[in-house]
Design a protein around this nucleic acid. Structure first.
Lengths: 164, 164
DNA sequence: CATTGTGTTCAATATGTATTGAACGCAATG
DNA sequence: CATTGCGTTCAATACATATTGAACACAATG
C-alpha cells in the first residue's frame, strides 16, 4: 500500500516535470509542490534539504514564484529565516507566468508590425515590385488581425473571470 | 530606407525567437515565417538554402508543423520535391501546439489525482495521522477543482470560437 | 565589534534538447 | 538495373539555459 509520503513525492515529481517541459526548470515546480503539500510555511533551508537543491537555486526560484504571486512571504515571530506558503490562486499564477513567457516577445512583435505598416505607407520602396508590396501588405494585415483577436481574447471578461 | 527583404528577414528572426523562448527551437518559427512570406510553395531545398539549416532539421520541423496543421503539402505537377505552404489558421495552430505541450503531462496529472483519491478512500493508510489525511484530502480536492475549471475553460465555446 | 545566521549574486558547470550530417531507403529516371 | 534525386532517420554534437556553489552583503546576536 502506498504511503502518504509517496503520493506527496509523486506530486512533487509531476510538478517538476510540468514546469520542466514548460521551459522553466524542474526546481520551480518542485518547490511550489513541496510547499503546497506542507502544512507549515517553509524556509529556504527546508527546500534545500527536502528537495536536495542548492541554496542559490532555491533563492532564485522562490523569487520567481513570488513574482508570479504563487508564493507569499510569511513572518514567524522570533524566527530570522524567511518562510513561504502557497497562494493557491492557480489561475492568477498561470496568467502571470504567461505574461512572463510571451510578454517581451509580443512587444517586439508589435514593434515589427508597426515598422512594416510604416514601410508600406512610405513611398520609397527601394525596388520592390507592386506585386511584392501587395503581397506583403496582405500578409501583414492578416498578422495584425490575429494580433487584435489575441489581444481581445486575452482581455475578454470571460478569460479574466475563468483565469483568475 | 528599409528593403522589403529586411522586413521579411526581421519577421523570420522574430518568429524564430518566439518559438525559441516557447521551447521549440528556432528553426520551427523561422521555417513557418519563411514560407508564410513566400508567394510560392517552398521545398525542403528552399528552406535549407534560404535559412542555412540542415536538411534533417528542415525535414523534422516541417513534419512537426504539418502535425500542428501549420503547413500543408502541395503538389506541383512534374516536380519530384515536396512543396509546402502555410495554412494561416493561427488559432488552430496554437491550439494544437498547446495540446502537444501539456497533453501528456495533463494525462499523467489526471492519473496521479485519481491515484490520490483512491488512496484517500482506502482504509489502510499506513501510519498517516488523521490530520495528515484531512490535509491531503483538502489539497487534492482543490487541485481537482482547478483541473475541472481548466478543462471547462479549454472546452468552452468562447475559447473554441476565438482560438480557431 | 567579532561572530553567526541569513538571503543574494553570478561566473562556472551540468543538463536537456535542438541541430547537424552522414548513412539509409525508396522511387523516378535514362 | 545503375544512377540520380529526394526525404527520413538517428547517433553525435552544439547550444541554450538551468543549476550549482563559493563569495558576498547584511542584520541580528552575544
Amino acid at each position: 500500500m502506498n504511503d502518504v509520503k509517496d503520493i506527496r513525492e509523486q506530486f512533487i515529481a509531476a510538478a517538476g516535470d510540468l514546469t520542466q517541459t514548460l521551459g522553466f526548470g524542474r526546481n520551480i515546480g518542485q518547490i511550489y509542490a513541496h510547499i503546497y503539500f506542507s502544512s507549515d510555511p517553509q524556509s529556504l533551508d527546508n527546500l534545500t534539504h527536502s528537495l536536495g537543491i542548492s541554496k542559490g537555486s532555491a533563492s532564485m526560484s522562490v523569487r520567481q514564484l513570488e513574482q508570479w504571486g504563487a508564493l507569499k512571504h510569511v513572518w514567524i515571530k522570533g524566527e530570522r529565516k524567511d518562510y513561504y506558503q502557497t497562494t493557491e490562486e492557480f489561475g492568477k499564477i498561470i496568467r502571470k507566468a504567461l505574461v512572463d513567457m510571451v510578454g517581451r516577445t509580443a512587444e517586439s512583435a508589435d514593434h515589427l508590425l508597426n515598422e512594416s505598416e510604416k514601410w508600406l505607407k512610405h513611398n520609397n520602396k527601394n525596388g520592390a515590385t507592386p506585386d511584392d508590396i501587395a503581397f506583403m501588405a496582405e500578409k501583414v494585415k492578416k498578422l495584425r488581425n490575429f494580433r487584435r483577436r489575441a489581444q481581445g481574447l486575452w482581455n475578454s471578461p470571460v478569460i479574466r473571470l475563468l483565469l483568475k
